[in-house]
Design a protein around this nucleic acid. Structure first.
Lengths: 238, 238
DNA sequence: CGGGAATTTGACAATGATCAACAAGTGTGG
DNA sequence: CCACACTTGTTGATCATTGTCAAATTCCCG
């Protein structure tokens, strides 16, 4: 099980994953040199911020429970969510100095806080750790590039299908049910992730439901009925 | 001078830059351990591919001359250019296994080819090299996230202004003229970068010209007449 | 069960895409 | 060096997708 590996669309990981060092969320300690560094844990209410734009980058966070969204804003309030982080994911692995993003819990969440100092120590003391970090960031970059393709060139329906498929694949990677999706974020947040309005997200959700591709179970649960068709849609098979 | 540093929008670099190891394009050698590894050079015609989707990731490339575009495609031909690489920039620093992108010279270009083997050696032998790589990738991720905001939430005019401003800032960073921009790529390529059509790019270019913000000098040169106004536009001051 | 927030649905408007024609560069061969 | 062909860019007219505004509905939680 690969708790910190983000969705890499094309190839399996080839380097030992970060979880080898920082664990997968069970322990409150990280192995550093031959000792351990203690990390703290923090609970976040729904919509509580983990950090804000301009904050000093003092910690790296590992999501233990819930979902955290990282976003950027324009002066007039328009918002772009850059990434959703699920349990196991590492937030802020590579930021330097002060951050230009905001990070907000999208539902009640828990994170482990790892001081950047500890990360730096690990990088210089554990030979493979830096490479694992590099691999993690590489994966994050690959995901972000995929998202660029979605935002720049896909229709609303395709964007939504791509989004659902991404969650599904993530579940598969984590050995969870890949047809039963948990979406604790609101429609507005999905919209801010896909560059759409609430209404467009809602309409296309309905369209997928009517087409028999998904079933909506409450507001934050989606069951995929036809994964194949969803994948076709996501990649532009009209 | 910081030849491999990509555009970081917010803070100055804090770690020694990669150019310390791989140079800034003058030398054909890279310092490895106490010796040197030879790198090869490759000339590319306009629109020649450096690599294609599915190719094994054998080299990292440093642009020496020209501009290289990295892009992804959908089955039906829609294209999203993920990044433009100018002289000094490093391409494919973090890809693993086989790439899911294409890289194409947008004008006659020259690149230096560094075997991944050499990169790996550098990472394990030179203490700071891995961190410099991490910083490079972090910068690239930050740029890609900015582009997400553009694609997801900005209007066509704002996207174009943001794009021009990015080139301008890059020039400033490289100690070049920040009001005299060289855009060797076609309108179609700018469109594929911004998620717009040729026509929309052209129309908004005209609009900027009519508003007295830029002057067009031929097809691949733009002079910025009002940098301040351009910056306002880029960030949504209607 | 009730109240408030989130979502869905509908009508209409606007931004950007598409289709089409034209203009301006660019390169080539006579 | 010029003429012609071809590619690239510009401009115009129309259309479609998605955004905006408004109302109704559903969901959730106490």
């Amino acid at each position: 099980m690969n708790s910190v590996q983000l969705g890499h669309t094309n190839q399996p990981e080839q380097i030992a994953s970060l979880s080898q060092w920082i664990g997968n969320g069970q322990s409150a300690q990280i192995q550093v040199d031959r000792g351990f560094a203690t990390t703290s844990e923090r609970a976040l209410d729904s919509h509580e911020h983990l950090y804000m734009c301009g904050d000093q980058h003092t910690h790296v966070y590992q999501v233990l429970e819930g979902v955290v969204g990282v976003y950027q804003m324009l002066a007039d309030g328009r918002r772009q969510i850059v990434s959703f982080y699920y349990p196991g994911d590492l937030i802020g692995a590579v930021d330097q100095g002060s951050t230009s993003q905001h990070a907000e819990a999208l539902c009640a969440s828990r994170v482990r806080c790892i001081p950047v100092k500890t990360i730096e120590t690990l990088i210089s003391s554990q030979p493979g750790f830096g490479q694992a970090m590099l691999a993690t960031v590489a994966t994050e970059l690959a995901e972000t590039r995929d998202q660029l393709l979605s935002l720049g060139r896909k229709s609303a329906a395709e964007k939504l299908a791509t989004f659902l498929l991404r969650i599904s694949r993530r579940n598969a990677r984590e050995n969870q049910n890949d047809t039963q999706l948990y979406l604790p974020m609101t429609r507005a947040e999905i919209g801010d992730y896909l560059g759409l309005t609430i209404e467009t997200v809602s309409r296309n959700m309905t369209r997928l439901r009517v087409a028999g591709i998904i079933r909506l179970e409450g507001k934050s649960r989606v069951q995929i009925l036809n994964l194949e068709k969803l994948a076709e849609l996501a990649n532009g098979a009209s």
